[in-house]
Every structure is written in C-alpha cells, then in structure tokens.
Amino acid sequence: MMNDMPQAVQEQTQGTGRRIGDVVLDLQNISLSFGGVKALTDISFNVREHEIRSIIGPNGAGKSSMLNVINGVYHPQEGRILFRGEERRRMEPHMAAEQGIARTFQNIALFKGMSVLDNIMTGRNLKMKSGLLANALYWGRAQKEEIEHRVKVEEIIDFLEIQDIRKTPVGALPYGLQKRVELGRALAAEPSLLLLDEPMAGMNVEEKQDMCRFILDVNDQFGTTIVLIEHDMGVVMDISDRVVVLDYGKKIGDGVPEEVRANEDVIRAYLGTSH
C-alpha cells in the first residue's frame, strides 16, 4: 500500500476524501533540558493539517517530552512553536486545550473513580458554560446543557463501540478498553490536533487492529490531525503519512515511511551497527 513515491502521498489520500493541507504546527529548533539532562536538542519538524504524523525512536529518545512540549506541560528553553501561524508564548496545558489540542497518555491517565460516561463527559468540560449556581439548581439551562452534551458523548460511545460499559467505573475495565475510553475522552473535546502517546502499547493483535481502525476513522471522518507515538513499526509504517525519528533527543530522520525505513541512521539506531 505504501510503495508509492514520496510526493504521491497527497494523490493517494485524495481517494478517501482526506486531503493534507497546510502546516498547522511548526516546531523550530526546540531544545529542552531538565537541569543538566538534555531531553531534546535542536529539533525541528512540522505537522500538516489532516495528516497522521508519527514520532518514533528507541526508549528515552524524547518522544513523550516532545508531546509534552506541544501541549504546554513542558516549556522548552529554546526554539519557536508556531500553531496555526501564530507564535506561541509560554502556555499552560489548559490553554493548549482551549486551542483544540487534546491528547492521551502513555500510562493511562483516566479518572479512576468515575464511570466511562463521566470520564468522556469531562472531556467536554471546555464546552460547558453553566456556572456554579446554575449547576447547584440543575434546572433549565444547566440541565439542558447536560443533555445536549450527553448526546454528543453518546455519539462518541457509539463510535468507539463501548455502549455496554458506559456506566462502569473505569478502574474496573481491562487495559485495552481503558485505552479506548481515554481516546474517547480526548475526542469529546472535538480537537483539531490529537496527540496519541503509544495508544497500542501492551495490546494484543486484535486490540491493535481495532485501535488502528479507530485512529484512521477519526482522521478520515472528523479530519483530525494526529501526532502519534508508537513502537509497533508495522502499525507506524502502515498508517502514517510522515514519520519523524528521534534518538537521544536529536532528530535523525524525517519523511514518508519509505524514506525513513531506508535511512541509514535510523537503521543504525534501531538495529545497531555491524562491525
């Protein structure tokens, strides 16, 4: 499926109604360090609208740090971040959420004491406007709003095929389903940019196939731009439009899957060199 030439990416995706657009997120010369430890060194890459952009690399390469930079959890010491053409100043995670950036976590970060429904409803937090007093009365607008958002959340529940567990506390669910609920919570915010940190880690083949299908469907149906961190090379090479490779906090490769697969540095980082 991916044997076309690099420039063929656009043509290939036109068939599905999905068109890769302009650059939405541009990271320029990002450097991040914690005390003396350099997590990221001079990394530049961009993400185009509607594409699936993967970040790969060995453990400790700085992939998760990269996502944390994008959604404002970490603040890089150097470099510029342009989101939709605007340079970003110091920002907090909730500001990134307000700009339409949602994410899932490598270690599941669901709200354990709450039901699946409440977890996904929480994802719509930014869209709910009723104040404290209105909520205390739970009357009129507050109740109307609650029902309106419930309708949207039920659509996500249908999309992810988790209808039967909507009232279950998430702590009681198996791992694969928790990952799915976490995706649901991120989708509830109707993000334009979705950051997925190892959504398929620890899953069996069927669960991985399901998750791939959901990611492709999200990208296809909602036009969501996706930045994906994943270790399963088969998955990455199959669903990504472009791949960036990190190693020890440095960028060693960037391009469509075929280019990356053929890149000498990448092969060396993953397989080691023969002597």
């Binding site: 995670p93 959420a97 307000e98 669901l110 994802g123």
Partner: peptide, 10 residues
C-alpha cells in the same frame, strides 16, 4: 483522580 490529565483536558 489525576490532576495532570485534568489540566490537559482544559
């Protein structure tokens, strides 16, 4: 339950 994830949601 998870303050970092809560902040990321907004």
């Amino acid at each position: 339950d998870m303050d970092v994830a809560a902040a990321v949601i907004g």
